[in-house]
Structure formats: C-alpha cells, structure tokens
Amino acid sequence: MKPLLSLLLAAWFLAIPGIAPADAQSLDDRFDEANGSYHRGEWAQAIEQYAVIREQFGTHTAALSYNLGTAHARAGQSGKAILEFERARLLDPPDALSMDIQANLATVRSSLAEEHRRSSGEELYSFGNAQPVWARFFQSMPASTLRWSFAGALALLILLWMGYRTTRSTGRALGVLLTFTVGLTLISGTMTLGNHWTAEQVTVGIIVGARAQIREGLHDQAESQIVPEGLSVRILEGSMQRDHLRVQLTNGREGWMAVEDIEEI
C-alpha cells in the first residue's frame, strides 16, 4: 500500500509541469509571425499580433509579455513597454529570460528618467517601483515559488515528524533537522501569507497615457499637473462616477488620475 501511495504522490508532483495548451502549434506559428513583423521593423504590426495571441487565445506567457514590451519600447511607447515587462516578471520567466526582462526594464526606465531630467531640469519623480518597502519584501519572490516552498517545507516537516514519532529517536541530528524545518515552514508560510496579503492590498499600475495628469481633486477647478509616462503608481481607490483613480506616486504625492491613463500590472 505504501509504495503505491508514494508512486501516486510522485506522479502527481511530476505531472505539474506537463500541463500544455491544446492549440500550441497554432500559437507558436502566430508568435513566430509576430516576431517576424518585429524583425522587419513593423513595430505596430508586431504589437497587434502579440495582442491577438493574448486577447483571442487567452495566452499569458512571460515570453509573450516580454516581446510585446520590447515592441512597445521600439515603438516609443515607454509606458506600455514598462507595463508589459512588469507583467512578464510576474509570469515566472526562466532565468535567461528573466535577465533580459530586467535589462530591458532598466533600459526603458533609465531612458525615461533621463528624458524627465532633461525636460524638467530636476528629478521630480522616481521611475522605480511604487510599492511600499514591506510590500516589495513580500513580493520579492514569485507567489508560486513561495507557495511551493511552503508546501515542500511542510512535506519535509511532516516526514521528519513521522520519522520521529515512529522511531522515537532522540538523536541530536534529527532534533536539529526538525528545528530547522519548523523554522523553514514558518518563514515560508509567513512569506506566502504576506505575499498574498500584499497582492490583495497593494495594487500597482503603470501610467500609459502620454498626457496623463494628476489632479488634486475630482472637481473641475482642481489643480492638475502632467506626470510622465511609464511612472509606477500605487492605486489607492477608484471613483466610479468620474472614471478616476486615486493614486500615490513614487514621491509620495497623492491625487486623482483618469482611468484610461493607468493600467494595472
């Protein structure tokens, strides 16, 4: 009985990465076509083709978001480029792709920051992440990694506990290992909960409107100011009546921005 259960559990875990889309061939062809458009310098065409893959086929991959972001960057749409790179980061990219995403994100952000410095003469905004420090800490690792780490630590803890209870061993090595595993489980569990909670509580968006403005209030006479495209903002609340969102910029300033100027990551 026990070997059978172990086999079933092993099959369960091994089967996880094997889930694949039904229409993989067709999607790959379309992806190649979009890449072809990009390589021919037809940025707008490439953007459209990537968007079709996502919208019509409901496909979300890190590579798709990364390529879409790169095409946006080529087309001079920095806000949307940053948005897509941020989305790509959340899609568990492989290590090599992850480095490319970070590199392109840094390139676009530094170019925006330089542009901003040049136009305003001072650095009014930071193009970094709009999340608070504690949220950034909990979001430093992908949620799925944290969840599976917690599950793994819990599995190890249960195995060790079962070993301890069965053998009644009081050996020092087992005690140390058990203590270490309890700590690991607690840490990964706390990180998982924190990650989930911050994902619920902290919503971050990217300014994609080229002429986005932040207003002090929702009334017509409220003071407003143009904010640069590509800036990361924390979305605090929405106003359905006026199609505006209350946001907090990276410099701490709060105000209202039109919904169409912001896209949630």
């Binding site: 990465p17 790959d28 798709l64 080529r74 001079g76 899609l91 392109n104 170019s111 992908p142 949620a143």
Partner: peptide, 24 residues
C-alpha cells in the same frame, strides 16, 4: 518618448514558452 537606444534592448524571446497562470 524618444526612441530608446535600440542597441541596449535585448533580443526577442524566440519561443512562446508554456502558458501559465500569473504567479501573483
């Protein structure tokens, strides 16, 4: 935004990869 320094941009991903649920 002015066109970004294209030489600094990394090349495209050639494979679509495995569709996945967003990790967040």
């Amino acid at each position: 935004v002015r066109p970004i320094n294209t030489s600094a941009l990394k090349p495209l991903a050639e494979s679509l990869g495995t569709p996945s649920v967003r990790s967040d």
